[in-house]
Amino acid sequence: MVTPRRDRKWQFVVDMDRCSGCQACVVACQAENNIPINSEAQFNQHRAVEWIRIERYWEGEFPNVKARFLPVLCQQCGNAPCEPVCPVYATYHNNEGLNVQVYNRCVGTRYCQNNCPYHIRFFNFWEPVWPESLRNQLNPDVTVRSRGIMEKCTFCVQRIRRAELDAARTGKPVGERGSEQEVGLQPACVQACPTGTLVFGDLNDPEHFPTLAKLVKHERRFRLLESLGTEPNVVYLKKVDLEAKEEVHGA
């Protein structure tokens, strides 16, 4: 019999204090996950597909303007609003804490997209096309989604699966990248991030994912739209701003 799988809970930490808004994660994600190239017209129609995007905010008045960057990806909610509205059970929660989108079940009702408060679900309004020069760039480990299908960030589940298989073959545990003793695991955006803004790991395995285990409990911690009770699996760390005035909200 197959040995039971380890009980995982995949989690992201986004340290907003480190983000410089360079968009490397966006490019890496597009390349890794076979996301079609978005045209200007698609952005204008609000039909562009970006599994991770950088939201930019301006703060303050000239000349004291500050740019704020907020990387937003699928929050893989523990209590996901997208799941109960799917009539064909194409999106569901698995026991690894992932909010799975099953492409071959999806019939394209877009209810999930309408019910997602984070706007990170994307519908394929067109058959995806790439220029001829990028034909060989497609990732064979990721399905090319056809027209009429909903898609979203998967936490690079193909990399998780590959790491698990490598771990099974070599006998090493799956862990943070950088040690010879373990099979390194990083989603494409984390790998591309030059400032170390993004940290990924298994919350149930602090031994092999020590950075995540430390940051998840950080005092700057917050989650997006926490009041909705969606229990996101992405933890954000607040920007450190020494000049900011102490503001009391809700007083």
Binding site: N95, E96, V100, V102, Y103, N104, T143, T154, V157, R161
Partner: peptide
């Protein structure tokens, strides 16, 4: 038999 074992 989780979907995300084979479908992704």
């Amino acid at each position: 038999t989780d979907c995300a074992i084979c479908h992704y």
